[in-house]
Design a protein around this nucleic acid. Structure first.
Lengths: 337, 337
DNA sequence: CGCTGGCACTCTCGGGCTTCGACTGCTTAT
DNA sequence: ATAAGCAGTCGAAGCCCGAGAGTGCCAGCG
């Protein structure tokens, strides 16, 4: 629906605007390399593009800036993720060759890597615990009425929950409960463990042990997926792309709410997109922002997602390739462990 | 060295400037309640205060704004931390009555509380692990050559380290090592555990077990205090106090470096201060910021510190009282556990 | 001697005005 | 269809000017 020339012109406007943040006039476009028509012709086409909603004019005698629809077209016909620069891909390679063990540290470092690649804010959402199996469970009495349950998952993640008891429990009882709990849930996933009906196991237990077991299982089931691990880096870089402190403050307020950030990314992925532009993010406060997302795959299963958040006038090609490459490498690195 | 009236005038300038962010003229000061002299007299005194370095003039025909020295005097003679408003202290009370267990969650929530009280960025540095004793240690084999060591500390904190082995180890060996490790370090502090000489325990162990033990002890000693837990909240609030995006970006860059933040707070405390103003923070990028800090005490020992970061024109009295009250309550709450 | 009122001076801020330049849209010629 | 030219629009920048806020200083008063 957009003929060849109009597409070229639109592309030129978008790239120029991304670079300069200034409205782009017909003269600039006409003098650009890919366009071989006069500025008058460009003007006609730009008027058409504006009528179709791809461009907008801040005021009469100014150039044009892309609308969300304009960015969307640009991104879509951009096609594949493109290639990373040599320095960048070198940076990715050395990063992943050096990294090892310690999942949290690694995810946190990954967010730093991604933000340093793109100069936007990077978000890394850790793997869902639901798919990992429980490797070990331990109960540690911290004080007579406070017991800490520590789960080690096959992914290497650790989940801890404190359990408050209504009556004192000595070490013997706690240990007995721990042993019993181990036989019950080790090897299962968190999801299946939390669905164990605590009433089906009353028999054959001493009352004290049963109390602890029931409390432990309740805690497991209780705060489902309450701690997705989210790592956000590079906010200072991203902030520099905006010019109103007000805007910045609103964006930071979003980023402070980890739950919102997670669902933001997942909403985008659920809609089958890898880029959400402006209001497409579904959040009014991010009207001037775009999000680039990719899931990463561990052992054949989609485990989590990573993404960057930047201004709508973002370097989409770079961001897309950086996100794609990092997601890929991250998934592979996590699969080895 | 500052007579009564000059002090009053200085105080009036500072409070007014904190409120309005506008240079304060002699007329305003003269009409303020505490000052009963004419504006001419105020003018004379303000000139003197400027000569002594307490005030500065942006330009000739403008009012005066406080210098760092001016703020310093203001803060010092402010005396005690002052009182919190009723709403605020109510907020603190309900927060700490509701909170329980789960240290990390609690520290993170505390930083949110503190930022919501002050509208500045709040920093909460978790307790040092060095003083806590080891309650339990567990080794979990994730894969043949990867073992995860999980320590539970008496504070309820968890420390995990992954250990990479050069040879495969089966569960039996891992378990044997875990048992031996438990007898070695449970009950000790992290510091003393990490100072165990791994060569003194070769005797009587199977070679495989010894390898794991040595690796585990090495890991313990290795990354000393590498994970102070730092929780930062309310950056979006703080940002709103500034008007240049550039400044904001630099401040955020500081806050992204957790190590820097921790040492920032500790430097201030080490100098015996509870407030650092502008360059007193020791960081050029924070020239327009001030920090208010307080340590918190758990079981009679200084365990960690909390603080807020805001603009130099911060509401010092409110910040001081908020930080003091929260530090106090936090210490008490953590002591119970 | 300290305080005050008065006065002249300085400098920023905002409005109004003009100029400049970057665009556009349209019309006409090829 | 494309190009060229031309008139028109509108913001940005520069300028002037007056208003206002504030200062410093001086002379007089208690």
């Amino acid at each position: 629906m957009l003929d060849e020339r109009k597409a070229t012109i639109l592309r030129a406007v978008v790239t120029e605007y991304i670079e300069t943040a200034q409205p782009v006039g017909s003269g600039h476009v006409a003098s650009s390399a890919e366009v071989n028509v006069s500025s008058a012709t460009v003007r006609n086409d730009m008027a058409a593009l504006e009528a179709e909603g791809y461009l907008a004019q801040p005021h009469t005698s100014a150039g044009r800036i892309p609308t969300e629809k304009g960015y969307r077209f640009f991104v879509d016909q951009l096609g594949g993720p493109g290639k990373l620069g040599v320095n960048e891909s070198q940076q990715v390679r050395t990063f992943f060759s050096r990294t090892h063990g310690e999942m949290e540290q690694m995810l946190s470092d990954t967010s730093r890597l991604l933000s340093s690649l793109t100069h936007y804010a990077a978000v890394v959402v850790g793997p869902q615990h639901e798919v990992a199996t429980i490797k070990s469970v331990q109960l540690v009495g911290l004080s007579p009425r406070l017991v800490l349950a520590v789960l080690v998952l096959s992914s290497g993640a650790i989940e801890k929950h404190s359990i408050e008891l209504s009556a004192d429990a000595d070490d013997l009882i706690v240990n007995a409960a721990a042993v019993r709990l181990s036989t019950l849930i080790v090897g299962q996933t968190l999801a299946s463990a939390s669905s164990i009906d605590s009433h089906s196991l009353d028999l054959g237990e001493s009352a004290d042990v049963a109390i602890i077991l029931r409390a432990a299982l309740a805690v497991l089931g209780g705060e489902h997926r309450h701690d997705d691990q989210v790592f956000i880096g590079g906010t200072s870089d991203m902030v520099a792309s905006f010019d109103a402190v007000r805007t910045v403050s609103e964006i930071l307020r979003i980023l402070e709410q980890q739950l919102v950030v997670v669902s933001l990314l997942e909403d985008v992925l659920d809609r089958g997109l890898s880029v959400a532009i402006g209001r497409e993010t579904g959040n009014e406060a991010l009207a001037d922002c775009s999000i680039v997302v990719a899931p990463y795959v561990v052992d054949g299963e989609t485990a989590g997602s990573i993404g960057v958040l930047g201004p709508t006038r973002m370097h989409y090609d770079q961001a897309l390739s950086a996100v794609a490459v990092v997601a890929n490498r991250l998934g592979r690195t996590l699969s080895e462990g």
